[in-house]
Amino acid sequence: MRKFFGRTALAAIAVSMATEALATEWNVSLWGKRRAFTEHVEKLAELVSQKTNGGFTLNLSYGGLSKNRENLDGISIGAFEMAQFCAGYHRDKNPSITVLELPFLGVDSLEKEREISMALYKHPAAVKDLARWNATLLMPSPLPQYNLVGVGDAPKSLGDFDGLTVRATGGIGAAMKSVGAVPTSMSATEVRQAIDSGVVKAVAFAPHAHMSFGVIESGNWWTTNLNPGTVNCPVVVNTDALNALSDEERDALMSSIDEALDHYIDNYNNKTMKAWGPALEERGIEQVTFTQEEIDAFREAAAAPAAAAWVEENGARGLPAQELYDFVLEQINQGS
């Protein structure tokens, strides 16, 4: 009897070890800390594990695998299987999706940002562009319109931005430059030190980032309605790793994207934005609102020139730039 039990136990152990050996683990490179910006990745990891009974897991690392500006490079060499990055961090590496960072596109909700991003990610030019890095675009990180938190005297008109040093990437940087500001590109993790040391006097961020990276601990004014645009920050996967998944694992991953994005948007709209107003009021941060005439002038100065420059620059790269720009405008105007 003891002999039979021993063999049974050994068989069970062998099966257990085989199951563990067959388990799939992906490393995911993020940065900062868990926040509204990463909630869809957190949810995705939860859903994938549930659907595969722990057979496929996503190990999320906040800065332990790579610097945020090097995440696409890490994906390209298979250093990790999934990563998040922002297009404006390296426009030359992912020019196709920087079209979504052009100023004053007119996207007015996270839901619309999600819809347009997902459509663009399937465009053949975007697929081909990211394929150069062995990357497949999985899902966006929809963000609201950016506004500025700054130090010193609060601007009373757009003319007060002349000469102001501003952390602003991509199209937002181009927009700020059109009103005389001096845009500087830096990663989110560098911003608090930059504003505290005086390297920049203002920071363009979405509300969650102003809170998560401590900008509102230093700032004393905030613009309520500049709304020049936003940044596009996709989650990508290593294409070889994606292709190596079993049918069950791939289905668990891909079928979880919509639910993960639903969770992300619900969390941003109903938690982050509800916390934003009180956070400003608690710190006595002055809220600066510009007249509609000034906003219209800002849009006129920034939108068309930035779009024309983007089309010219990226057309010269060999991208179907005008086609991509028209595609995005068509997506924005659908249902409007």
Rank of each mutant, 00 (worst) to 15 (best):
N238G: 08
E330N: 11
A87E: 12
A45Q: 02
K67C: 01
A309L: 12
P124N: 09
V235E: 07
M118S: 04
L261W: 09
Q193M: 09
V99Q: 05
H40T: 03
A316F: 08
P144F: 05
M118N: 12
S212H: 06
A275S: 13
A202Q: 05
L10F: 06
K122V: 01
A168G: 10
Y89H: 09
T239D: 01
A209G: 01
R114F: 03
L72T: 04
V179D: 01
E248Y: 00
I13S: 08
A307D: 06
E323C: 00
D251P: 01
N269T: 00
G180E: 08
A316I: 07
A11Y: 06
F4K: 14
A316E: 15
T239L: 03
G150K: 05
E293Q: 14
G159H: 02
K128A: 15
P278E: 08
E39F: 05
A309E: 15
D162V: 09
F327R: 11
L164I: 13
E115R: 15
E111W: 13
I97N: 08
S16Y: 11
V288S: 05
V311M: 12
M139K: 04
A36C: 03
T184W: 01
A202V: 07
V107M: 13
R317A: 11
I295T: 11
E313M: 15
S29E: 06
A87C: 11
L148I: 14
T169L: 14
T165Y: 09
A175P: 08
